[in-house]
Design a protein around this nucleic acid. Structure first.
Lengths: 193, 193
DNA sequence: CTGATATTAGTACCAAGTGCTAATAACAAC
DNA sequence: GTTGTTATTAGCACTTGGTACTAATATCAG
């Protein structure tokens, strides 16, 4: 084996494609210094579909997962469960880029972003905006932590167009963040500000 | 014109494709009882890209947004003036990627991020963490707006290692966001290097 | 009837593949 | 060295869902 082993190349190939599904066989062949045919054999063995199928997969996946009040792509973290106007759950994996270099603790605005976008997503309305919120960062979160955030709609006032949402984020069962969000919604008379 | 007018067909065609970008010319031809060539002419006139391009657009759009949560920079916005443990000022230009596609209003977490990172920056300490905050989104902010955020340190308790910071964000002199941040810091007065 | 517009047909070509066969290359075992 | 096995490369026909272009025909309006 010249460049490395076949196994090693296939491992890297899987990674590369997972990282960027938009890459063609030709680009991969150049990258790994092998022929296009080898790349194709590799894909066969690894059961990796062709470029067009991969792209279609990405596209259809996001198409299925559309949430009514907010496109899925505008949510920080991944929504794993949602019951509109009732409750929602999202996961956010804290990575190196989310923490302070100096102390390794996650910057507050990332936790806020996850909570805030979940609060917006749970509202079953075309327009949902955060008006006010009262939040507490209970415990530091670090890179590698998986933050699970739960949103519970706890009150709704039709007249003021407000909905109250309670947010709780935990890491390994321990609460790291809590917040109460006051959301504005349009439903009823759709007048925008 | 046989089936209806060309205009009517093209209107329906746009709708159909918008509704389901995964449809092929052939399917469309069958649906509208015209030839594939007519569908292609229609797409030309309406500047609707071919199936593969449409799918790629859907896929890449969601792919971008997955990564595009919050910037990696330690500070959101540009600090233009700072007097440690006293006050600080930052500017943040709201762009298209910061607003909801649906209504053009800036997502709350970006405003929070600017305020939060300014609150962290104004503290003259190695470690500064947000413990609690009470915030209000006073007025919607839109793409193109220049948000100026001012942080004022309004209180400090040596024993609890807490510092209170008041944040105000304005656009063209109008207040759009206010917040009170409770910051934790490691060192009390006099312990500093 | 004439012209303009709309529609259809047909051809060559493209990207990014699949599926298949066959030729080499590399390396290990004996 | 020779043989066996696995790995790699090459080549060709074929596929989808198109583009780009030309040319013929249909439809309708004045």
């Amino acid at each position: 084996m010249l460049r490395r082993t076949k196994k090693e190349r296939q491992r890297l190939l899987s990674e590369t494609i997972a990282d960027n599904p938009f890459v063609t066989d030709e680009q991969l062949a150049t990258q790994f210094q092998v022929s296009v045919q080898t790349i194709r054999l590799d894909r066969m063995e690894l059961a990796i579909p062709e470029l067009r199928e991969r792209i279609k997969d990405v596209a259809s996946k996001t198409y299925e997962n559309e949430v009514k009040s907010l496109p899925i792509d505008e949510v920080i973290g991944e929504i794993i469960d949602i019951e509109l106007d009732n409750r929602a759950l999202s996961i956010f994996d804290v990575k190196e880029e989310h923490v302070f270099q100096r102390n390794g603790i996650a910057r507050g605005h990332h936790l806020f972003a996850q909570a805030n976008s979940l609060a917006v997503a749970v509202i079953d309305d075309e327009l949902a905006l955060t008006v006010h919120s009262n939040i507490s960062f209970v415990k530091p979160v670090r890179a590698g932590d998986r933050v699970i955030t739960k949103a519970i709609v706890i009150g709704r006032d039709e007249k003021s167009h407000r909905t109250k949402v309670e947010l709780t984020s935990t890491v390994n069962g321990e609460t790291v963040f809590v917040g109460e969000f006051d959301m504005y919604r349009t439903k009823g008379k759709g007048e925008q500000q």
